[in-house]
Nucleic acid binder design. Sequence first.
DNA 1: CGCTTCTGCAACCATCCGGTTGACAACGAC
DNA 2: GTCGTTGTCAACCGGATGGTTGCAGAAGCG
Lengths: 116, 116
Amino acid sequence: MGVEQLDRAFAALADPTRRGLVARLAVSDATVGELAEPYDMSFQAISKHVKVLEEAGLVTRSRDAQRRPVHLRAEALDSMTAWIERYRREAEERYSRLDDLLDRTDPKHTREKDGT
Amino acid sequence: MGVEQLDRAFAALADPTRRGLVARLAVSDATVGELAEPYDMSFQAISKHVKVLEEAGLVTRSRDAQRRPVHLRAEALDSMTAWIERYRREAEERYSRLDDLLDRTDPKHTREKDGT
DNA sequence: CGCTTCTGCAACCATCCGGTTGACAACGAC
DNA sequence: GTCGTTGTCAACCGGATGGTTGCAGAAGCG
């Protein structure tokens, strides 16, 4: 279930409209109607986008009478950065240690380093 | 041009195969052939995936005779975390300050906070 | 009750995406 | 030159995606 969430989370943020929604939601919770206002597309389209964000675990919806305010889940963003940062750090450490250079000049060095 | 790169970067990481490639490349540069080995799909499919990563700015390819080693660009990962972190931080600060609650109970409080 | 508002769901359509196969270009070895 | 290795490009196909429109449901208001 974890990997699928990552899939969906990255896919969700791949769309500029949805990134816009996230940016907006970082400021405050909002209803779908409020979210749709700035955009030139149909209300239903935004509703769909919100659904995608919801299925990605990036937002939740609560009930407040007939309004369903959308709320950004900061922890979901957290797990995305966690994934990225892991490999970014790994790569950067490698560069700084110049193992990179070794690999390129010596192809037989089949990277049997344990990595500590 | 910057936004498009973000689009593509997120879209690129939305695919588990490509995330796998990134994870692998964090360890060391590799040729397309090496990258394809662990996977059960055609060599050309991996080649396509690498191309997607390249167009997203996540990897570069150098020339080494007829081999074209693929290299992970840590800075690209950086710009992704930068985007995410910006809004995550914004949201978390809001939660901790309970402005969130104010917004929900007082809709007229049109968030005229300047933010430091 | 009936009307309006806000919202979600379903059908539809064009496009994109991830995989396949087949052909071909570049380089090294013979 | 011919072959093998490495990799790209092009065509194709099925499924997902992003947009549309239309309709239905729930809550407040007359």
